[in-house]
């Protein structure tokens, strides 16, 4: 009898009911979370920016980041907050981030939330170069100024959807090329090198990989492996360890971000090949600076992460005032080595 009861449960409407309830509650949970995030952000912004959409004199700018748990983005957000404090009479700021760098859906719903809140401008670091285009198009249609930072939206997709969103940010390819060239100087032609790329679908990841390849090929180095470390330290560590076993003559690893560079450095140390295999990274996070000083990582690239959002915000403000056209703007990248840190 018990079995038959279960059977009935399964084949009648109960599963549907459950699902409904689940979706319902999940939707509500997301909503509540977003509200919570917004609320927390507002608290964090200090009192003057705490009345965002209501204040008609000052424009409200929404900064939508990738994971705020990633140091790179939290530094960027901090830079933006500092800028806002210094220019509190010019605009108010709402900062949002997503939980996981790859959680596209959450980022999209944040954009929608911001449109609904009638912000004046959105400055966004898209989690994906293509998928965000439709929702940003809706933002433009709602009269919101949109500025793209960090990860450039795909040109093809922008063209397809007939929208024009300015990209304000560094030339990742150029930055990676600088690191690659610096690395190549310490090696001789024919040496084996490997690349740890980020998530292959991300545009900045692709650009950095291309920049590394430009420089390494120009120096006639032999690229023996290109694998993804998924932007993560532990993951990159295990991939780097395998590269080191597979290629006993490996001379260098170029990592598309500093977390992966840290993982690679740890793998080199574990393999007892410290000094024999060089590492370069990208982003210049605080943890990597000590490594550069100690000579465990050769170089990284500073794209002035703390200023990236600020550049975007300045562009948005200029556009709101009608002072600037929706043009791309390149921001500087600098090579960081042991010398430049001193």
């Amino acid at each position: 009898m018990f079995e038959s009861r279960i059977g009935r449960n399964l084949w009648h409407s109960r599963p549907r009911l459950c699902e409904n309830q689940l979706q319902h509650s999940r939707g509500r949970l997301c909503h509540m979370l977003i509200m919570l995030i917004v609320a927390l952000t507002l608290i964090g912004c200090g009192d003057r920016s705490s009345k965002p959409a209501a204040d008609n004199d000052n424009p409200t700018i929404a900064l939508i980041m990738k994971s705020l748990a990633n140091e790179f983005f939290s530094t960027m957000a901090d830079g933006a907050r500092d800028h806002q404090k210094a220019h509190a009479d010019e605009y108010s700021l709402i900062v949002n981030g997503i939980k996981d760098e790859r959680d596209l859906a959450q980022q999209m719903s944040i954009v929608e939330q911001m449109i609904a809140q009638q912000v004046d401008a959105i400055v966004i670091a898209p989690a994906d170069s293509k998928a965000l285009a439709p929702v940003l198009k809706r933002a433009l249609e709602a009269g919101v100024v949109v500025v793209n930072i960090d990860n450039k939206l795909d040109d093809g997709v922008l063209e397809q959807s007939g929208i024009d969103i300015p990209f304000v940010g560094p030339d990742n390819r150029d930055g990676a090329r600088k690191a690659g060239e610096h690395l190549a100087k310490t090696l001789k032609p024919g040496d084996e090198v490997a690349i740890l790329e980020g998530v292959p679908t991300a545009f900045n990841g692709q650009q950095r990989r291309a920049g590394f390849e430009d420089a390494l090929k120009a120096a006639e180095l032999k690229i023996v492996a290109v694998q993804s470390g998924q932007w993560e330290m532990a993951k990159a560590n295990s991939v780097a360890a395998a590269m080191l076993s597979e290629h006993p003559n490996l001379k260098a690893i170029a990592a598309s971000n500093d977390s992966m560079a840290l993982g690679a450095a740890a793998a080199i140390k574990a393999a007892g090949r410290e000094g024999q295999v060089k590492v370069v990274g990208f982003d210049n996070i605080s943890a990597v600076q000590q490594m550069i000083k100690d000579g465990k990582i050769l170089a990284t690239v500073d794209q002035h992460g703390d200023q990236l959002a600020v550049y975007g915000i300045e562009q948005a403000l200029a556009m709101l005032k009608g002072q600037a056209a929706a043009d791309d703007r390149q921001t500087p990248t600098d090579l960081i080595t042991a010398e430049s840190i001193k």
Binding site: M1, S4, R5, R8, N9, H12, S13, R14, L17
Partner: peptide, 11 residues
């Protein structure tokens, strides 16, 4: 009609 209840309580 069984001695034991044969209903699905959540429905």
């Amino acid at each position: 009609v069984m001695q034991e209840l044969n209903l699905v309580p959540t429905l």
